[in-house]
Simulated scan of single mutants.
Amino acid sequence: MSRESEKERADRNFVELLQGARVAVTGVQVLFAFLLTVPFSQQFDRLAPADRWLFFAALVGAAVASICYIAPTAQHRVLFRQGRKELLVKRSNFYGILGALALIVSMTAATGLVIDYLFGPRLAWPVAGAIAVLALWTWFGQAAIDRASGDDQDRDDQDSGEVPGGSSGGSDVPSSSSSREESRA
């Protein structure tokens, strides 16, 4: 089994980060687009000041999440063929975490806003809180516990030159000439 070079590892890590962002960015963009239309609805002017602040948090959270999830692709274009893929991987990971946190804010605020509008604050706040706790736990809490417990299966796979699933590290790296040019970024 061949070991992954640093360049191959950076290429693979960047591709994995982009795949994860693709899943999230679609949902973020749909939520953001919906939130952009809400103020133009006939009932928006009836919102209480607290609901307007919830809307503000949801809208800004969705905007920040969109920016964070799009940043790696934009920076890849700017840094194309500069040999800074490892830097791009580190930044992309940071932006992914920041984007997920902003998405939690947006989803929680939007859910709270809708439930408050439909049923009032007595139901809205506990449900919004539960949504926030669930997202924090499933997106970060479990992974943080695994990381703290020393569960380093992925690191073992990486160090042995294998990627999860049993293939060699180099097999996931694109081999076409255009992909090789892009990997120089």
Rank of each mutant, 00 (worst) to 15 (best):
E6H: 12
E8Q: 14
E8I: 05
R9Q: 11
D11T: 15
F14D: 00
E16K: 13
Q19H: 15
R22C: 10
V23E: 05
Q29M: 14
V30H: 07
F32K: 11
L35T: 10
L35A: 03
L36V: 14
T37A: 12
F44R: 03
R46H: 04
L47D: 07
A48Q: 09
D51I: 02
D51C: 00
F55V: 02
F56E: 01
F56G: 00
A57W: 00
A57Y: 07
L59C: 05
V64L: 11
Y69C: 04
I70D: 05
I70G: 08
P72F: 03
Q75P: 05
H76P: 04
Q82E: 12
L87C: 10
G99C: 12
L103M: 04
M107H: 13
M107D: 06
A110Y: 03
L113C: 00
V114P: 06
I115A: 11
R122M: 15
W125F: 12
P126G: 11
A128G: 15
L134C: 06
W137T: 12
W139Q: 13
Q142D: 03
G150V: 03
D151W: 04
D151N: 10
D151A: 07
Q153K: 01
D157Y: 13
Q158F: 07
D159F: 04
G166K: 00
G166A: 01
S167Q: 07
S167E: 15
S168N: 14
G169A: 06
V173A: 02
V173L: 00
S175D: 14
S178I: 01
S179L: 08
S179N: 03
